[in-house]
Design a protein around this nucleic acid. Structure first.
Lengths: 83, 83
DNA sequence: TATATTTATGCGCCATAGATCATAATCAAT
DNA sequence: ATTGATTATGATCTATGGCGCATAAATATA
């Protein structure tokens, strides 16, 4: 699973997708990540003010990591179309 | 340039590295990103509560994006050693 | 070494994230 | 349609990020 992200909304989508892929409810993810279910809901819906730490706590619980890279030119649009 | 990130600190390092690669001062990056120089200093130093939006504003100014992926097992340690 | 430039940090203010709780709204199963 | 499960949202409270300013501290340059 790879999701390109350039906005908090993209991050939210990636998290939701990964969570569903693992067949977890937000509550279960909450328990694993130490973040409240209510908070996870907001993050998944793209809350722009979300704290970086919160995102990484969730990522850890979903066994995700991120790769920071230069923007891929040209392929970015088509890449986003896939997801 | 690719940096694996699992913590706010990793993100800060990636940002600083990219900024230096482009030979920008924090002030110049601040002007480009619309984020205050003082804030950039904190972000680069791994402020855990950094807002996601702030990170993406900086990324946009540095022409960076992120790829959310499953954790690479085994290779993670050696990968981090490189950066 | 002296000077210039860049980065880090203190301060006050305001908006808000996250916690915590409750529950309305939505979705899924029957 | 009804019931159960899941997600979204409102309310309150505390801590804090980012702004905006100033400037100390660190780094770079001459």
């Amino acid at each position: 699973m790879k999701n390109l992200a350039r906005t908090p909304n993209d991050i939210g989508h990636a998290i939701r997708q990964a969570r569903k892929a693992k067949k977890l409810t937000q509550k279960e993810l909450a328990e694993r990540s130490g973040v409240w279910q209510e908070t996870i809901s907001k993050v998944e819906n793209g809350l722009s003010g979300t704290k970086l730490e919160t995102v990484f706590d969730i990522f850890a619980a979903l066994d995700l990591e991120i790769l920071v890279q230069g923007r891929s030119k040209g392929s970015a649009e088509s890449f986003e179309d896939i997801f």
